[in-house]
Design a protein around this nucleic acid. Sequence first.
DNA 1: GTCTATATGCCGATAGAC
DNA 2: GTCTATCGGCATATAGAC
Lengths: 199, 199
Amino acid sequence: MARPKHPQETRQRLLAAADEVFYAHGIRNSSVDEVAQRAGLTKRTLYYHFPSKDNLAAAYVQQRSDLTLARLIGAASSVAGPFAAKVAALFDAVERSATQAGWNGCPFIRTAGEFVDEPRHEAVRHASQHKKNLEAWFQAELVKDGYAGHQRLARQLMVLVDGAVAQLLLHRDPAYSQAAKQAAAALLGSARRPAAASR
Amino acid sequence: MARPKHPQETRQRLLAAADEVFYAHGIRNSSVDEVAQRAGLTKRTLYYHFPSKDNLAAAYVQQRSDLTLARLIGAASSVAGPFAAKVAALFDAVERSATQAGWNGCPFIRTAGEFVDEPRHEAVRHASQHKKNLEAWFQAELVKDGYAGHQRLARQLMVLVDGAVAQLLLHRDPAYSQAAKQAAAALLGSARRPAAASR
DNA sequence: GTCTATATGCCGATAGAC
DNA sequence: GTCTATCGGCATATAGAC
């Protein structure tokens, strides 16, 4: 077995292994043995770096949230022009991920579903917070572009994104993300900026 | 322990118990002991009526699908007038369910998430089929009302329904189903019937 | 048809050596 | 810091009595 000298490296390796295993099979359906083995370590070492499986699961969701937010907002922000164009780019990024091998749905919705009988679980709280963070970014961009009804529009965009992901998981058919993208464009189009509408 | 004489009654009782237990905790996170105990029977009797836990899980999802479709389509159909009004009633029915104690999200999305590493599982197939059945009803109603683009509109309605349910599970806030209902109204309004638009 | 009792295996977490 | 070995519990599924 490999024996890294620096504890932070070992911790990161365990987190990377947890990400693969938990995302592939679900948290409750994975064992800490699987995670440790994937990291090339033993269970006992895992428990040296993490106090419990629940704590490891929470760290996994938190790390996923950071990476996912950076990827989604990055894909949207890489496009110049109005907010509607950025939203279209975000839906395209979602579709690209979802059509790749190994894609297994939204880890945050899946975590909320897995631990529906433990709503206070730290992993569930991180999952909810992730969605709130994306919604807050939507809202800030809508305000920046002068949209009226930014609160409702941001909620509708969240509904469209998560609805598209749910359908993609159920049917594995990109037609649903296309439909969601068009719905987002229609909603943003009909709720034009008041400044533009009054000119 | 109660000893019903008719096997069909016992089977139904086990199915009712499975519905409660599986929906409350998830399928993989429930034991057949829990289900049998909830039914007032023993595990051995459960295995007399069902060949395996997987088979029981599939029967649970199938039964949930029948009841859910009847309830949703019934709530929509109880409203007179155009299809848009029926859709609004459907979103209201979803919100009423979701704000009741014991509501734990969409069992079909949750099942697809739980068994994401077993996509051929019978329970997963029933869950996908359930969504396809609701989408087919949407499409038939859209055709009946003379909407153009009924295929895309039906997909968008599915995205909005499941997106609303996902947000309701994550945040337990009916503002998201309200937002989804308004988005559905806006999409149906801007995609008016070609007959009405050309008159 | 329903029961008690059990086979067999995996789980999360820990003891103690080095 | 990482290892080998193990504890106690619970899982699905089955044996055999009545």
